[in-house]
Design a binder for these strands. Sequence first.
DNA 1: ATAGAAAACGGACCGCGGTCCGTTTAGTAT
DNA 2: ATACTAAACGGACCGCGGTCCGTTTTCTAT
Lengths: 204, 204
Amino acid sequence: MFLVSSIPIQPDVPFGPPHERSDAARNRERLLCAARELVDEFGVEALTMDALACKAQVGKGTVFRRFGSRAGLMMTLLSDSESEFQRGFMFGPPPLGPGGTPSERLMAFGEGRIYFVLENGELLKAAATNARNRFDVPATVLAHRHIEVLLREADIADPWVMAMSLLSALDPERIVNDVRVHGISPKRLTESWRELVARLMRSS
Amino acid sequence: MFLVSSIPIQPDVPFGPPHERSDAARNRERLLCAARELVDEFGVEALTMDALACKAQVGKGTVFRRFGSRAGLMMTLLSDSESEFQRGFMFGPPPLGPGGTPSERLMAFGEGRIYFVLENGELLKAAATNARNRFDVPATVLAHRHIEVLLREADIADPWVMAMSLLSALDPERIVNDVRVHGISPKRLTESWRELVARLMRSS
DNA sequence: ATAGAAAACGGACCGCGGTCCGTTTAGTAT
DNA sequence: ATACTAAACGGACCGCGGTCCGTTTTCTAT
């Protein structure tokens, strides 16, 4: 029954859990469970730190020690689906995974990201607000590196910066806004992304 | 001494101010003055609604009635420089203003925007946080329309969505992060933007 | 079993953005 | 001048994220 789910956020240096205390483990389980219930029942905006502490029968300080901040909590909640998506573009089959041309992979990446955002939009937005740095969170850094590598194969002068620009275009808040406020269909979004990538990476 | 500065946020239907009361005008002046002092002396993050109310010798409710929210206050503070920038790309000389090719104009727009953001980054970020809609604020809508029109003259399939994507790449938080956290020079940013536009808009 | 230390706990506390509503004040009509 | 009305006012109040610190619990060494 050790560590049934969720690897510790900070992978401590050598390996193995540095003896997580039993009460801590129990409380984490309780908190995650309560958090998911709260989200499922009342939506992300109802997932208040106080409400969570109350529902999980735990002190508020405990919630913050566990997750650091509300954004950290949201990231923990996201980590499973995020990991799945990451596996997709790092090890999965083409066109998303290794094997296709950089252009194809980048198009597939954007498309996958768009649908991922549309499924987890509220969580992603909550994970981004007031985070010390929306951009330097592991998942985002990884996505950026991925794009950067793909761009490097296409004669982009400054792949690092260009990757940032492209990543901005996949910003959750922007995508959710386009769809929910302006009624843009996911299809239009992905097709426009494909056009952007195609025009950017065509060799001529 | 009527309306010495700052047009009312909601341009009331026909014209003319609907008799703004003298105390309201006096308080607005006091508030804007105090706000600028606070920012100049202690930075944007010190511009608290309470601190502002206190410094301007005004009730907190007054601050909120005047500006609606902290984001609204920030937008008011920005409106002068924002208007100037807008005049630049709408009526100014080429390459920013009318006269150049769409590609040149778009490059110049991004460059101008980047430097604008680097001068007003903190204010822009504060204006964007917790705004009902970061995107549907007048200045942003105008910029979007501008890009859209320029794109329409190239053969972009979906100028509306593409304009959104490009605008995302100029997001203040992103630009400030690149420069301040990662030490990217403004020059690199603008050159990468130029490359993006060039590749996007070259015809064949 | 026992003692000691480290870690986890819990909830009072803070500052902030934002709201509400009873009170005051500026303009207007007489 | 006076009375009336609509607007502006002000500050108590709320919920939230986040911190702090005295108390409790778990583990380990003896």
